[in-house]
């Protein structure tokens, strides 16, 4: 494995990580929004969203990617591979994280909400000042888990031609007729990335638990 080859793979890794990062920034808030809408009172919306979330959670990610890339154009939304990849990643992670947010909202202690109401707080203020600050800290573990899963899913976008780590490794393999080394290198690099994230998550969790006492409801 030559150094330029390794550089190519590293570049691919950067693309993958960047895709994942953008999707994380979009999907976590989107997941929260979905959860709030599902627990909201607009007629028809909770059921629709529940069906959507069920569907996305049962569908393999690669199938979702293909769906977004090949089917949406028929509905008028023609996307380049990179935007399509981001849309698929965002929808996927939003659906999964909405379950985490939803369970946090549902199990949030009722008496805290009642106390806020008794002191004249609006529902919006209650959410922003009381509910949200607690639930994002308490669920940091599961949320970061979702992020890790998203990172592990991302290589699948190679199937619609996005040049990220998988394609990079594949291209080098095709040029050198030795596909195994580049894929081993790609695996090592990417695993190292994820392993670092996981270690970091554990450290952060421990620190949060120490500062806020029992960070889990």
């Amino acid at each position: 494995m030559t150094w330029p080859a390794i550089r190519t793979i590293l570049d691919g890794a950067v693309v993958t990580a960047a895709l994942a990062a953008v999707s994380i920034l979009l999907s976590l808030p989107l997941g929260l929004l979905l959860a709030l809408l599902r627990e909201g009172r607009i007629p028809g919306v909770p059921a629709l969203l529940a069906a959507f979330v069920s569907l996305v959670r049962a569908t393999p990610f690669v199938t979702l990617v293909l769906f977004v890339y090949f089917v949406l154009p028929a509905a008028g939304l023609e996307l380049e591979p990179v935007p399509a990849a981001i849309v698929a990643l965002t929808l996927n992670t939003a659906a999964f994280s909405s379950e985490i947010w939803r369970s946090a909202l549902v199990t949030f202690p009722r008496d805290q909400r009642e106390a806020a109401a008794a002191f004249g707080m609006s529902e919006r203020a209650t959410f922003i000042r009381i509910v949200f600050p607690q639930i994002w800290r308490a669920n940091l573990g599961p949320l970061v888990s979702e992020v890790t899963i998203l990172l592990k899913c991302t290589p699948a976008v190679a199937v619609i031609g996005v040049v990220e780590i998988t394609r990079a490794a594949g291209r080098i393999g095709a040029e050198t007729y030795e596909p195994l080394p580049p894929f081993l290198v790609a695996t090592l690099i990417y695993t190292a990335l994820i392993a670092t994230l996981v270690r970091g998550q554990r450290v952060v969790e421990r620190r949060i638990a120490r500062r806020f006492g029992l960070a889990r409801p």
Binding site: C153, P155, A158, A169, F183, Y190, I194
Partner: peptide, 15 residues
């Protein structure tokens, strides 16, 4: 558990 499955599949496939 930190390995992306697709890359693992490739490694096995070519390995």
């Amino acid at each position: 558990r930190c390995v992306p499955f697709l890359l693992l599949a490739y490694v096995v496939y070519y390995g």
